[in-house]
Every structure is written in structure tokens, then in C-alpha cells.
Amino acid sequence: MTLSLTIERHGRTALISLGGEVDLSNSHDVRKEVVACLNDRWDVVVEMTHVLYIDSSGIAALVEGYQTAKRFGVRFALAAISPPALRVLKMARLDSVFTIFDQTAEALVAEV
């Protein structure tokens, strides 16, 4: 199972949907896309419904997104996180750091 990554525009928000396995072989792609959207000063929602696995390098890409957004004064949120991904986020105690929405629709409304 490889990574799937799609980007949709919703107003000023980029919805990045991740699926499959995020690991050392592809986390730099996630990082690149997240940072590119933020560099263009878009708000970013990362939808993680179909993430089957995420490792520390994938989590690091999200942390970098969180920090970059803060610096640029734009919003960064995670939405609809799959149980395996949430388990890893909790392991790193990052579930209290990120803005997290249960549903993608909520995240998009909140961002508008």
C-alpha cells in the first residue's frame, strides 16, 4: 500500500487528503505539499480518514506544517483521523497540540 495524496481548494482553504501508509519513503512528499500550500498563505486542513499507518517522519511533516502556519498566521488543522493515526498522535501527546476535527466538513466550515 502506497501513499495517496490529493489537494482540493475550498475557498481560502487547501484540503489535503492523505491515504495509505505515510513513512520514510514518502513523508517528504507530504511535507513538501503542506509547506507549499502554507507558503502561498492558504489555510490547510489535512484529512486523515484513510491513513493506515504513519510513522515519526510523517508526524514530523505535520508538526512542521503546524509551526509554519503559526509563523504565517494561517490556520492548520487535522480532520477525520483514522484510529491507527490517532493512536500514534496520542503516543507523541500531539493530540492536544494540533487542532483536530472529527469531521472534514466541520474543519472546512471552521476555517472559512
Partner: peptide, 18 residues
């Protein structure tokens, strides 16, 4: 340290948790 929210360096922590 987990208080420092920074990319990287998390792997060892995950191993310790798992």
C-alpha cells in the same frame, strides 16, 4: 523532550512508548 514541539527526534519516543 515531548514539551518541545519540533519535527524529528520522535522515533525513539515512539519506540519507548510501543
Amino acid at each position: 523532550p515531548l514539551e518541545a514541539v519540533a519535527p524529528g527526534g520522535l522515533g525513539l519516543h515512539f519506540m519507548g512508548q510501543a
